[in-house]
Amino acid sequence: MVKNLLSLFLTFAKIGVMTFGGGLTMLPLLTKEIVEKKKWASEEQLLDYYAVGQCTPGIIAVNTATFIGYSQAGIAGGIFATVGMVTPSVLIIIAVAAALQQFMEYPVVASALMGIRAVVCALLSHTVITLAKKSLVDIVTAMIFIIGFVLCFVFDITPILVVIVGAIIGIAVNKVREVRKK
């Protein structure tokens, strides 16, 4: 049992170190480590976990890690896999954050950061485009998007409320569709 938990922790720590970007970019790495090497899940199961991980709240990488850990060693397994997954991030980010703070005052670093911020704006804009392509699949979703746009830009409502309104509209729309079918 202990060996099992340790193995979960180490495997996911390794995946955490080797992941750049999270989300979908992680899938090939997961397949290699989890399906081929450790045989903790079949490729089909992994895709199932992944699909559910995307439609439950939270970080997809963490959801998938919890799933696999839980399937191998119960609740403790889920926790160890997740802690393994996030440990590299926590160590690396704290080190980088502390270092960056030290160098922030140098003019060269300030200039570099300004250039980096310009690129972040471009990257984020592309993220919005990708999200829009994936989520705006028909007229109804486009209308929900516009409602969300108004809620954010005009009424400045907290993100949590916007998500809840989205869920309610989604359920209501599909109820109406069901009734119409009958």
Partner: peptide, 26 residues
């Protein structure tokens, strides 16, 4: 399924709003 059908486009609005704020400030 239907809740997520509604949430996904909302998330896009939310991200757009945040990105707009970040870009305009930069």
């Amino acid at each position: 399924k239907s809740a997520f059908y509604g949430i996904r486009p909302m998330v896009t609005s939310l991200v757009l709003f945040a990105v707009y704020g970040i870009v305009s400030q930069t």
